[in-house]
Amino acid sequence: MPLLAIVIPYYKIDFFEECLESLVNQTNKWFKVYIGNDNSPSDPTSMITKYQNKLNITYKFFPSNWGKNSLPEHWNRTINLINDEKWIMVLCDDDMLGPKVVEEFYRKLREVEIAEINLIRFATQEINGTGEIISNIQKHPKLQCYSDLFYSRFIRGGRSSLSEHIFRKKAYDKYKFKNFPLAWHADDYAWLEFSDFGFVYSINTALVYFRLSEFNISRPNYLLDEKREYALVFFKKVLMNHIHKFKPEHQYPIIRYAEMLNYPNVKRPIKLWSDFFLLTLRYAGIWEALKFSRRVYLNSKVND
Rank of each mutant, 00 (worst) to 15 (best):
G129P: 02
Q144C: 13
V200M: 14
K169H: 06
S163K: 08
N128V: 05
G157R: 13
Q125I: 14
T130L: 05
K174L: 09
E164D: 09
L143M: 12
W191R: 08
L149Y: 15
D173Q: 12
F215C: 03
P141C: 09
K139T: 15
D173C: 04
N128Q: 02
L162V: 11
R159G: 03
S152T: 12
R153P: 01
F197A: 08
I203R: 09
S152P: 04
S218L: 04
L162S: 06
R121I: 03
K170P: 00
N136T: 11
D196T: 12
K169F: 08
C145Y: 07
G158D: 09
I137M: 10
E164N: 09
T124V: 14
S161V: 00
Y146H: 07
A183N: 13
S152Y: 15
F215K: 11
Q144D: 05
S218M: 04
W191M: 08
D148R: 05
Y151V: 07
R153S: 09
V200S: 11
H185Q: 05
Y201D: 02
L207W: 14
H140L: 15
V208H: 15
F180A: 00
I137A: 08
G158F: 10
E214D: 14
K176S: 09
I166V: 07
K170N: 11
Y172N: 01
I133R: 10
Y209M: 07
I117W: 13
I166Q: 02
R168W: 07
Y172V: 01
F199C: 03
L192K: 02
G198R: 15
L212C: 03
G131T: 03
R121G: 11
I127A: 02
I155K: 10
F215L: 13
S147N: 03
Y175R: 10
T205L: 12
R168F: 10
